[in-house]
């Protein structure tokens, strides 16, 4: 059982900002707080996307491995960010590596339970999907700006 003070930490995460209370409650009921040491893997490319993370503190790096160039660090994420949407979209496999570059505290959700919740309660499913779409949209915009190599 997640202690009440932990629930409060997770409740104040921007992912839940302005969501209906019953949606927040339903999603929070699946939250588990977890600490990762520096250098720990949250997910590996190609593995089943079996979890969803909301970062409460710390920093993680998103990396992609390419032949000849090796690992390319694409982005870092920190407190207030969400990690992963592959858990929602078939075939539910991670598309990137994510590991901690600093000790990191997360709210962790079991992807299967969260998908089940979204399928059984479409109001929850709608708000969770909509919020994730906002995350995806922001990341896509940021990636496009990065692609422009604007400082060149």
């Amino acid at each position: 059982m997640t202690p009440p003070e932990t629930i409060q930490d997770v409740r104040s995460h921007p992912f839940f900002k302005d969501l209906p209370e019953q949606v927040v409650e339903a999603v929070l009921s699946l939250a588990k707080e977890r600490d990762y040491a520096e250098g720990a893997w949250l997910c590996r490319e190609g593995d089943p996307a079996d979890r969803f993370f909301l970062i409460l503190s710390g920093t993680v790096a998103v990396e992609l491995h390419a032949p000849h160039t090796g690992k390319r660090r694409i982005q870092t994420l920190g407190a207030g960010d969400a990690v992963g949407w592959s858990w929602l979209i078939p075939p539910h496999r991670w598309q990137f590596d994510v590991f901690t570059v600093r000790p990191t505290r997360v709210a962790e959700f079991d992807a299967q339970e969260l998908r089940k919740l979204c399928e059984s309660d479409h109001t929850v499913g709608y708000y969770v999907t909509k919020r994730l779409l906002e995350v995806v949209s922001r990341r896509l915009a940021a990636a496009r700006i990065q692609l422009m190599d604007m400082y060149a």
Binding site: R73, I74, T76, G80, A142, Q146
Partner: peptide, 23 residues
Amino acid sequence: VTVDRADRSWHGHIGVVTTLIPA
């Protein structure tokens, strides 16, 4: 401080500068 690209020797932020505004 953030950079658009870096290798593993960089321990700071990676991403466009606008992503720092919420922080």
